[in-house]
Design a binder for these strands. Structure first.
Lengths: 182, 182
DNA sequence: TATTTTTGTATGTTATAATATACTTTAATT
DNA sequence: AATTAAAGTATATTATAACATACAAAAATA
């Protein structure tokens, strides 16, 4: 999984230098030992939230500044470079952009083998799905309604209800889905 | 100093319930042991940023949601209820609103005894001060310029340069200052 | 150059975050 | 009611965050 410590270290060192504070001075301002601050800057420690909070306050910067993951302006993702998640019903999920903390959504590329069905229990909490049909004919069912999407079609629905994906054909079906969490 | 653990606990418990997840399920989604999640919810643990990050990601909420300190809509501060900071040169500082992580500024009430001087080294990093004169005549000097403020006057200046407060009179001088950090 | 001061790093110790496991309690099923 | 399952809590152990102190290197002063 994702490790924040190098990012925090970089941010902290940069901010401290910008304010021309020594480890000693920041230690005094924040109430955190300079040894700890040094270790955090070098990415050698995984600080607790309280510690990082005090450092942020001492520095007079927001907490967010310290965990800000200066993402590159552009991020190209090759479908084939990502290891897919194979579901029990044969559906293949490729997380193109997995959930990112400061965005509220994630994007998957999905492949369904011929004559396959995937039933998804509603993800509670007001989430929404946007499905972009990509190849083949996809059937989406929720509650009572069923929709058939041809390549290029799209559908949006509240995902807090149970919904079913079905590929009734002999051919593979592909689509992308954007899941948005309130 | 400020302790985030009860706030995080409350936020986490609330969010997890809203999404109808058990400790076990969230543990599985986040990769953090359910015992730890339980302890955090009860405010019994001060989690590391990496741990909280994983929990936030598992929950599909932003990190900020977990450390969000639902401030009350209104906050009345009585000058006399706050213990002042007495400076070496006799200046008295009362932090009316001390630095708050998600705002970028803080507000002090300041009292200067007769014939007193306070020299402030520039707070580096593009910070700004807004001084609101409240009682008596206040002299503010930065670089070459000197300004004299009567009660009710105000001044704004970049605080990255050395600046001096002076009360040349026989009477007490009071003012408030808002310090804004870039 | 020698001396002092300032800066960051290294080391040993203590407190506690995090885990794994077992336990209790409540809810569901037979 | 008895049994099973699902939920949260308690306990013991391990890993490590955080501190205090001492050290090394660089900068400033004499």
């Amino acid at each position: 999984m994702y490790d924040l410590t190098p990012i925090i270290g970089e941010n902290l060192a940069k901010l401290r230098r910008k304010k021309r504070l020594s480890l000693d001075k920041l230690s005094e301002l924040s109430g955190i030992s300079k040894a700890m601050i040094g270790q955090i800057e070098r990415g050698e420690s995984n600080p607790t939230v309280n510690t990082l909070w005090k450092i942020a306050s001492g520095l007079r910067v927001s907490f967010g500044k310290l965990i800000d993951t200066n993402q590159p302006a552009t991020e190209l993702v090759r479908l084939n470079d990502i290891t897919p998640i194979i579901d029990t019903d044969g559906m293949t999920l490729v997380p193109l952009f997995s959930f990112d903390n400061d965005k509220g959504f994630e994007i998957f590329s999905v492949t369904m083998p011929p004559h396959s069905v995937h039933e998804a229990a509603g993800h509670v909490g007001g989430s929404e799905e946007y499905v972009l049909s990509f190849e083949g004919n996809l059937e989406v069912t929720m509650e009572t309604e069923t929709y058939t999407l041809a390549a290029g079609d799209a559908i949006r629905f509240k995902a807090d209800q149970t919904h079913t994906y079905r590929n009734p054909s002999d051919k593979i079906v592909k689509f992308q889905t954007i899941i948005y969490y309130s």
